[in-house]
Write a protein that binds this DNA or RNA. Structure first.
Lengths: 338, 338
DNA sequence: TTGTAGGCGTTATCAA
DNA sequence: TTGATAACGCCTACAA
């Protein structure tokens, strides 16, 4: 019985050459039949497709990457792999790259610029065709590495107005302002801002918060922690809030994790929301619409940020003309908690 | 002024040969200095390290993959990219692979065996060194592809007792039984099971549920939906539950998303938890410990499942002896909701 | 300890 | 339309 699957290569896998040999033609023709079918005669094309299927040929990406100087990889650096926000961003990128046959290489920077630097350095060896970064804050060395790589880069989450950069995101400041204005409109006057995980976006939201308060001649009440954000931390922070600002009638949490935690703790302590304390969050996580009361929040288009950023990057990789800045905006979700 | 960075290669990047040329030695020596420093004289080694740094050489993974028939890639197929459970699993895998210089290629199967098949087929071209799969249920074609690839495979989440397979997970059935027994112990007698996203694990938990009820001579009350699971669905399902089983005094939700939603809806309607209705969930998501009342749940070691599965896979890739089945167990988290 | 030769699987280039 | 040749960057095997 003849060998059905010739395995001549070192890897034990069927190669182009194997298919070519089986058909007594040259490897390059098989390659063409797969990549540019129109350049191969219909008859031969048909035979090739048959053979490819029968032998179970599967193109080797490493070889292709080597030959074309295109890896099909996109490096994605995000500050967290568990934060629902970035999970959604990654989902958008994934869905945009998948149909293009491209892959993402994910690096977790843990909200650290030093980590980002290291990750970038390590991943450059994978010869990514482009890079997706979170936020605008990067170390000098990171910037140097990026420049030296000459790879297209798209920044996600925030907006960059520099002409030579690409970014997809929203104005975190404007969003923070919108939430604060909303609370003011609702009649709250002693509004606190509670922030953890002091990343740049948190600070930008705070700027918007302060701007809105200033517009209305109100005083700021802020609590800042470097601790990573979480629902549990939110619960804990309620104590802190009431201790430092016992008079406050509303709180704007820098994200929904904190807001949810605060809400639960209010329930636990019998503090009426929003009657005694109104709560506003940020990001509109999936559960926020369902809590009791439902959480007022800022919905951020993070899935779309991922998608559009990936799309913009691919355009850049292909040297296509495309806009370099995309403001995807945000939506205030006014719900029961305010 | 001399060119500081020789860029001879097509990719415009510094190659081994560039470094070698600069030092007037051969490329292989540079290669050795990097991979097996002890095989290069200290003096030369030092000069090479210098040159590598100065020129900014970065090894090309594609070339390495081609030459060594090792891609450093691990294919990971998960049913969801947003479910906290798999996010955590991916985190564990990531943390285990990272220090080894290996990468994960992530495929989202959307809880579909057909999708899994397609993803597998597409990713095989990346020549992964091994494969990490979720669950034991796979289509015949998937199984055929796996067998043909001859790649090591580790299955996550459930346990496999077949001798020739590798798996890391827990007994979903036993966990379901433990939760139900707990509810029975607490005095509940009319316990319902509510399931969405009819995946195999959901069914195994149901088996445990039925077994525990049978032990106590109690009747089952089950609600099954194919709809994807979510907090919102949980809220909606409370109506359904009370309509179909108005007498039930406790409900075991197949996961915490549903359980949280139900809890919130109970709050909204003023249904006392656990006095009127006790609630038990599954997976112990991050927020579940903080809701009011806190949610009784089954904590699953998903991060460790990811880590151990990755570790087991790497051992297999390196042909090392290692156990082939790892039961990481679970923990009942008895809290206020029951 | 260092180097030479050749190959990994694919594609670009040029020729037939 | 098809093919020969060389190259992509690195590594294994063997030799010096």
């Amino acid at each position: 019985m003849a060998e059905r699957k010739p395995r001549n290569s070192a890897t034990g896998r069927v190669t182009l050459a194997d298919v070519a040999r089986a058909l007594d033609i040259s490897a390059i023709t098989v390659s063409r039949a797969l990549k540019t079918p129109e350049r191969v005669s219909p008859v031969l094309r048909e035979r090739i497709t048959q053979a490819v299927r029968q032998l179970g040929y599967r193109p080797n990406h490493a070889a292709r990457a080597l030959a074309t100087a295109r890896s099909g990889n996109v490096l994605v650096l995000v500050p967290s792999l568990t934060n629902e926000v970035f999970v959604d961003v990654l989902g958008g990128i994934h869905d945009e790259l998948q149909p293009r046959g491209m892959q993402m290489l994910i690096g977790n920077t843990h909200y650290s610029l030093r980590e980002e630097e290291k990750q970038l350095e390590a991943f450059l060896g994978h010869a990514p065709d482009g890079i997706l970064l979170s936020g605008l804050d990067h170390s000098p060395r990171t910037q140097a590495l990026l420049a030296e790589s000459r790879l297209p880069v798209v920044t996600m989450m925030e907006l960059d107005n520099a002409a030579d950069s690409r970014s997809v995101g929203l104005s975190q400041r404007a969003a923070g302002q919108a939430m604060t204005r909303h609370l003011i409109t609702r009649g709250y006057r002693r509004i606190a801002y509670v922030a953890a995980q002091g990343d740049p976006r948190t600070r930008q939201r705070a700027e918007g918060y302060r701007a809105a308060l200033a517009e209305a001649n109100l005083d700021a009440r802020e609590i800042w922690l470097e601790t990573p954000s979480s629902v549990g931390l939110g619960a804990t922070l309620l104590t802190e809030l009431l201790a430092q600002h016992p008079d406050c009638d509303a709180v704007f949490c820098c994200n929904d994790d904190l807001a949810q935690g605060m809400l639960y703790e209010c329930q636990r302590r019998g503090i009426a929301v929003p009657a005694r304390l109104a709560i506003g969050g940020f990001n509109d996580l999936a559960a926020s619409a369902w809590t009791h009361p439902a959480l007022t929040s800022i919905a951020t288009p993070r899935y779309d940020i991922g998608r559009q950023a990936a799309r913009m990057l691919c355009a850049a990789i292909d040297n296509q003309e495309a806009p370099r800045a995309l403001d995807l905006g945000f939506t205030l979700m006014a719900r029961g908690s305010s």
